[in-house]
Design a protein around this nucleic acid. Structure first.
Lengths: 161, 161
DNA sequence: CGTAATTAGATTGTGCGCAATTTGATTGCG
DNA sequence: CGCAATCAAATTGCGCACAATCTAATTACG
């Protein structure tokens, strides 16, 4: 089965040719795969990311979590409020800098990490990749993201006159 | 600069080790890159995807667009209503099957394709990939998505007893 | 010192994404 | 034929994402 030949010259707008759509679609497939695994933990995927960030380093200000995950306060404020409601984290205003709100894991939040180990294993299996393949693909995506972010900050290159 | 050694054995939950986070993050970086390019066209990225689907094949029912993009009516109904409001598409109930609503491009919607060519070029440049590299990465992601979707439909494998 | 600029976080408003439900049309089957 | 099952869209409700705005705290600087 031969695919239609494609190259940069005969290129026109096609969904199949879009790297971005492949990423967009894969991202949704991932969160759909995570959903039933995270449901028993009472977490959504973005909430799970925040928990991972806190399991790596507890007692972080909202800003630090946002930088780590690429999210702003508009997303994190209500999300963290829900995690607080679930009893997984607490918020404490920093004594030295009253602008900052530090996010701390509760006992329940710390204990959840054990259950989360099973999630990682199940997801790894669902990807059908070896650990090495997954890391290689991850590296490519991280590099791509860097380039996109850099291109975004040098706007002239995106708007050639 | 040597990175911390990682393999499947010493693996624990780390953000840096998550393929899914890399995809999630890259997807956001992409839509952020698209945003200023699509703004002049009056489109969001998901709306742009719908337009591409219609430029490829006009007069499709909502269901067909949903299958193509992996979106359901809960997402598409309001999105299409906004595209209709923008004067880019029209909705017409199918005579032969009154359940279906066919989406048709308006003249304005058809004409927008010309402007969109510039977007593709700018994005291609922003990725910093050659066409071949982009297609290779795309292929890997499509294959990954297939495996995730298949794993999701065979739930037992995700919940080993 | 005191005011301007910056920073952290919260809030508001818009637009996805998706589960669950509803409405209406079509199909299947006894 | 007639009724149940299925199907296409739309709607509702919740949770992100993110721009824009607001408040309060801190820093910079004349």
């Amino acid at each position: 089965m031969q695919k239609k030949a494609r190259n940069a010259d005969n290129f026109e707008i096609e969904l199949d040719a879009q790297l971005c759509f492949a990423i967009y679609d894969a991202a949704h497939a991932f969160t759909r795969t995570y959903k039933p695994l995270l449901e028993p933990l009472g977490l959504t995927y973005p909430q799970y990311l925040v928990m991972i960030a806190l399991w790596e380093e507890d007692d972080q200000p909202v800003k630090a979590i946002g930088d780590r995950l690429g999210l702003d306060s508009g997303t994190l404020s209500p999300l963290l409020k829900r995690l607080e409601q679930s009893g997984l984290v607490a918020r404490k205003r920093d004594r030295d800098d009253e602008r900052q709100v530090k996010i701390l894991l509760t006992k329940k939040g710390r204990e959840l990490k054990t259950q989360a180990a099973g999630v990682t294993a199940a997801i790894g299996k669902a990807t059908g990749c070896s650990f090495e393949e997954a890391m290689a693909l991850r590296d490519e995506l991280v590099a791509l993201k860097e380039r996109l972010t850099k291109a975004g900050s040098e706007k002239e290159t995106l708007f050639p006159v």
